[in-house]
């Protein structure tokens, strides 16, 4: 299943680059050119702006979920166990952070304590691929399958033959808000997470395009689609001779009010 993977990200306008609190990971690491999409894992996370250490937690989640077995993207209980495993490892990360602050002469301030005690929050979308095999429920034309599990409002869009065939988990631009479901670094409740995770599977064919997006660009994508536009054409051509530079594109959409000012991350899986 040959293809390529491209990633783009930009921090919130008016902030600094190191304040970017989305995170993503693609394994195995892909080069700029052709890669085999079989066994590819992609994880995308958006740290909640009202929580502290949201970027660090998002990074921890994507590093964990880029390495999980495919079962974790198929079985809600398995996903829940992996999310709790990531949360369990968070305690050591937090201790290290507090120690570094002390060592740097910047101890934790009173206004940080309540948030650190509540833990960090982030959304998560994890996607895995595999080749089709007989009896796996895929269509005869499918070269492979994707498996996606999500908590919150990161989205997967699949485009085939110039049409949007999958929007997951949100399907309308009005579905976005400031209260998405979030994974908390203190959450040890496998059953609750299993109950709230959304899971979906789809077939992969030659020439398909799959876009994984954090919420601001996902909302723009759906709004454009609702208007009858083909936003995937812009995303497909990013960085090419015919396309726009990602930062310029996002800057234009923010300035015109067509995209909310937020950290933005896009991963494009291009099936050849």
């Amino acid at each position: 299943m040959p293809g390529s993977v491209a990633s783009y990200h930009l921090h919130k306008g008016g902030g600094e680059a190191d304040e970017y609190e989305d995170a993503y990971n693609v394994l195995p690491p892909v080069a700029d050119d052709q890669t085999d999409l079989v066994d590819l894992r992609v994880a995308l996370s958006d740290g909640a702006s009202e929580s502290v250490l949201a970027g660090l937690w998002a990074r921890s989640l994507v590093d964990h979920f880029a390495s999980v077995a495919l079962e974790a993207l198929v079985s809600p209980e398995s996903f829940g166990r992996e999310a709790v495993a990531a949360a369990t490892s968070w305690d050591a990360i937090l201790s290290g952070y507090v120690a570094r602050r002390e060592a740097a002469g910047r101890p934790i301030q009173w206004y940080e304590e309540p948030k650190l005690n509540r833990g960090a929050y982030a959304t998560l979308l994890a996607v895995g691929f595999r080749a089709s095999s007989g009896g796996d429920g895929s269509e005869p034309e499918d070269e492979g399958q994707w498996f996606a599990a999500v908590i919150g409002d990161c989205c997967l869009f699949q485009v085939r033959d110039d049409s949007l065939i999958t929007a997951f988990p949100l399907t309308g631009s009005v579905d976005f808000g400031v209260n998405p479901d979030l994974l908390n670094s203190r959450n040890r409740d496998v059953h609750l997470i299993a109950d709230r995770v959304a899971i979906r599977t789809g077939g992969v064919r030659q020439q398909d395009d799959i876009y994984l997006c954090t919420d601001a660009i996902a909302a723009w994508f759906l709004r454009e689609t609702e208007k009858g536009s083909r936003p995937w054409e812009i995303l497909r051509d990013l960085g090419t001779a015919d396309g726009q530079d990602f930062s310029e594109f996002i800057g234009e959409k923010r300035a015109s009010g067509h995209m909310r000012n937020d950290d933005v991350t896009l991963i494009h899986v291009d099936v050849w």
């Binding site: 009202e50 949201a54 400031v178 959450n187 409740d189 709230r196 937020d262």
Partner: peptide
Amino acid sequence: LDIGTRATDL
């Protein structure tokens, strides 16, 4: 007051 994504538990 909205300043971004709220930190709320599942």
